[in-house]
């Protein structure tokens, strides 16, 4: 993918995230890895007004801002996550209602739904010490997972493509909603850890590529 295509995809997705309540206009943030560059939303322009010229480019290896307006303040976190997770090419900050509530509550969200186990992982952990201890707690809490809760600030979702990162954000919202609201019904029943891990493995090895193969 080239910078231009990544930028177009990023802007198109940002509009969908706004419409779906997954991102906030002034505080939303998403990025893409394109070869050695980070393409990321700027700090001072709302998602609803983004144009391709408004996107910021940062070199992944040197963290040097090379083009566009000032990058989002969370760009260092994105650089660190891309550095650690080589299969991630897209990151989205999820700010939907249930994800934010769960991040404020500060509890690990267990897999109560099978698609949460498949797309997010065996749980969604909270990075309690971000941002004051840097990206380390986020990377640690996200280990083996496609999403992490950022204490009080919603979630961070990553995947190989924007489409997949979007799906992770949708499923994280559903999983957090089920976790929170099932407490009013007496509590959710979690899928056991072995089955959750198995579901994730099968999804990653077999099902996630079906949209390309099954034609």
């Amino acid at each position: 993918m080239d910078i231009q295509t990544a930028g177009q995809e990023l802007i198109a997705l940002s509009k969908r995230l706004l419409a779906q309540g997954i991102a906030h206009d002034w505080d939303g943030c998403l990025s893409a890895r394109v070869q050695n560059l980070l393409v990321i939303t700027p700090e001072d322009i709302p998602l609803s007004r983004l144009t391709p010229e408004d996107l910021s480019l940062v070199e992944l290896n040197t963290a040097t801002h090379t083009r566009g307006p000032r990058p989002d303040r969370r760009f260092a976190l994105h650089l660190a996550v891309y550095g650690k997770r080589k299969k991630f090419n897209a990151l989205i900050h999820a700010q939907s209602l249930s994800v934010v509530t769960a991040s404020k509550k500060g509890l690990t969200v267990p897999p109560l739904l099978d698609d949460m186990a498949q797309l997010v992982g065996v749980s969604a952990k909270v990075a309690r010490h971000w941002p004051h201890r840097g990206p380390g707690p986020v990377i640690s809490a996200m280990n083996g997972r496609n999403a992490v809760l950022l204490r009080n600030k919603g979630g961070l979702c990553g995947a190989g493509t924007f489409e997949d990162a979007h799906a992770v954000a949708q499923v994280l919202e559903k999983g957090c909603k089920a976790f929170i609201e099932s407490t009013f019904l007496g509590g959710g029943v979690r899928i056991n850890r072995v089955e959750a891990a198995l579901m994730r493995l099968v999804y990653r090895l077999a099902y996630s590529g079906q949209h390309l193969k099954n034609r």
Binding site: A178, F179, S182
Partner: peptide, 14 residues
């Protein structure tokens, strides 16, 4: 379907 409110109730197995 995987609808939101129904999935929440299903998570509680009620």
């Amino acid at each position: 379907t995987h609808q939101l409110f129904a999935s929440t109730v299903a998570a509680a197995r009620k």
